[in-house]
């Protein structure tokens, strides 16, 4: 069997990450349940962090430490599963709009799922 290309490669590698990240972030900011958490967040830094995470989640080079995921979300106090689920749903919808198939979206969802407890600080 030949080496299978990653979703990261098929989307266009690092150049595709930023448009996908921006589209995803736009959906998150448009969501009333989530928007207020980003009021005082620097957009450039936030997008950089999300781009770094997406690079890994889409199967790109894995250099993301992710060790500050728990720290980064711990000050947000009342984060619940519903917040996390909505963010994952926005990510899935974003990928769908970029032409990504269900199987790949499920794989990305699984990576996101693996950090659920870090994000929700439990």
């Amino acid at each position: 069997m030949t080496t299978q290309s990653t979703l990261y490669d098929r989307l266009g590698g690092s150049l595709a990450i930023r448009p996908v990240t921006e589209a995803f972030y736009r959906k998150v900011l448009a969501d009333d349940l989530l928007a207020s958490y980003f009021d005082d967040v620097d957009m450039d830094r936030q997008i950089a962090k999300q781009a770094a995470f997406l690079t890994v989640a889409l199967g790109g080079p894995n250099n993301y430490s992710g060790r500050d995921l728990r720290v980064a979300h711990s000050s947000l106090g009342e984060l619940k599963d519903e917040h996390f689920d909505k963010v994952v749903a926005h990510l899935a919808q974003t990928l769908r709009e970029f032409g990504v198939g269900d199987e790949d979206i499920a794989a990305v969802g699984a990576v996101a799922e693996s950090v659920r407890n870090d994000v929700l600080n439990r």
Binding site: L15, R18, A51, A52, T55, G60, P61, Y64
Partner: peptide, 28 residues
């Protein structure tokens, strides 16, 4: 400073004072 180390997150932005950092250095 660095994070993704794959040219996506731009955490490792630096400035060339002299010389050419190469063709891939500016992507995005």
């Amino acid at each position: 400073p660095s994070a993704c180390r794959a040219g996506s997150c731009q955490a490792c932005l630096v400035r060339a004072v002299r010389g050419d950092p190469g063709p891939d250095a500016h992507r995005g």
